[in-house]
């Protein structure tokens, strides 16, 4: 689906700016940032997988990636003392030719550095070294595992992917990831495999832990539950399967005012593959630029301005405020 078509669809779904109306009801409009704690960097759209829920539509055919100049600009921006976290995502970050160098530079800044990996790529010969690179730099690894059942994960991510993720998680465990007192953090991400909301994060974490420990002897630190946002390939799925209207209604009906205060965009800046700045990864995919007067590019990063900016919201934002709320760090409550 093209961007114009995606915007048109969003407008049709939200003719009365219902998200803005909801924010007004809970006295949260305009939604403003409260800081920039996290610099989330979408380093490449390239990916060895082609998952059915992927909102950035990553695939082996994608070529967009952050240039070396822009990576250096990210490091300069991240040097600001109030930025605590570099959150590196993709695509598959391992497929960026300068990731290893970038992690070394980022680790030297003594900040929290995390990489969002699909896990399966860590078994490929060309990228296997990252198992050790991550451990060497103390990088927090966040692996997407939509479901602890093989058939469900494979339906979403491709045949055989579940087994490869299990093998990669074992390799990470062998290096100390997921064990107490090693300081090596391994977190997993759950996305619903279909047109429904995630269940309780606490209950699902228990389920994952029991199943992975019993079936595969795998340990991890925490599970993050993410609500699927109706953009990208997931939006295509909703349309094709006739679930779009019911799903978006469900997101709206599940609006939770108490989640608004903690939505991730209030403390995050997202850097796109071209170095442009966005309020979040979803706005990046929808090409929704920052509000007027804000620096548009990582080269022009201005902490003070960005930390007080007004956030651009549309109807897809209901995905982050549904139920217990959703963010790249899991639920918001």
């Amino acid at each position: 689906m093209g961007l114009d078509e995606e915007h048109e669809l969003m407008d049709r779904m939200d003719q009365s700016d219902s998200f803005i109306e909801q924010l007004k009801v809970c006295a949260s409009y305009p939604l403003r940032a409260q800081s920039v704690d996290v610099l989330q960097i979408n380093i490449t759209r390239r990916c060895n997988l082609c998952c059915r829920h992927c909102h950035v539509e990553g695939s082996p055919d994608r070529t967009e990636e952050l240039s070396l100049d822009n990576l250096n600009a990210c490091l300069r921006a991240a040097a600001h003392s109030r930025i605590t976290t570099l959150d590196i995502t993709g695509g598959s970050p391992e497929m960026h030719p300068h990731l290893e160098w970038f992690l070394g530079e980022a680790a030297a800044m003594q900040k929290r550095v995390l990489v969002r990996s699909n896990g399966a790529i860590l078994l490929d010969d060309a990228y296997r070294r990252y198992l050790d690179v991550y451990a060497e730099h103390g990088v927090e690894v966040v692996v997407s595992l939509p479901n602890p059942l093989q058939d469900r994960t494979d339906r979403m991510r491709g045949m055989g992917v579940f087994d490869r993720i299990m093998a990669a998680l074992k390799e990470l465990n062998m290096r100390g990831y997921g064990s107490p007192n090693t300081g090596l953090i391994l977190n997993l991400v759950h996305n619903p495999v279909g047109a429904f909301l995630p269940g309780s994060q606490q209950a699902l974490e228990r389920e994952y832990r029991l199943k992975l420990r019993h079936d595969c002897g795998i340990e991890f630190n925490s599970l993050f539950c993410l609500t699927n946002c109706p953009v990208g390939r997931y939006l295509d799925f909703l349309k094709r399967s006739g679930n779009l209207s019911e799903y978006t209604d469900m997101l709206k009906q599940s609006f939770n005012p108490s989640a608004v205060a903690n939505v991730m965009c209030r403390s995050t800046i997202s850097v796109g593959v071209d170095g442009r700045l966005f309020d979040c990864d979803f706005n990046q995919v929808l090409d929704l630029s920052l509000s007027d007067g804000m620096p548009a590019h990582i080269n022009d990063f201005d902490f003070e301005k960005l930390a007080q900016r007004t956030i651009v919201v549309r109807s897809h934002c209901f995905a982050c405020t549904a139920g217990s709320g959703s963010s790249c760090q899991g639920v918001l409550e």
């Binding site: 619903p192 429904f196 269940g199």
Partner: peptide
């Protein structure tokens, strides 16, 4: 049914 799916029930 939706709740069971959300809770990861097979």
């Amino acid at each position: 049914t939706n709740k069971c799916l959300s809770m990861g029930v097979s």
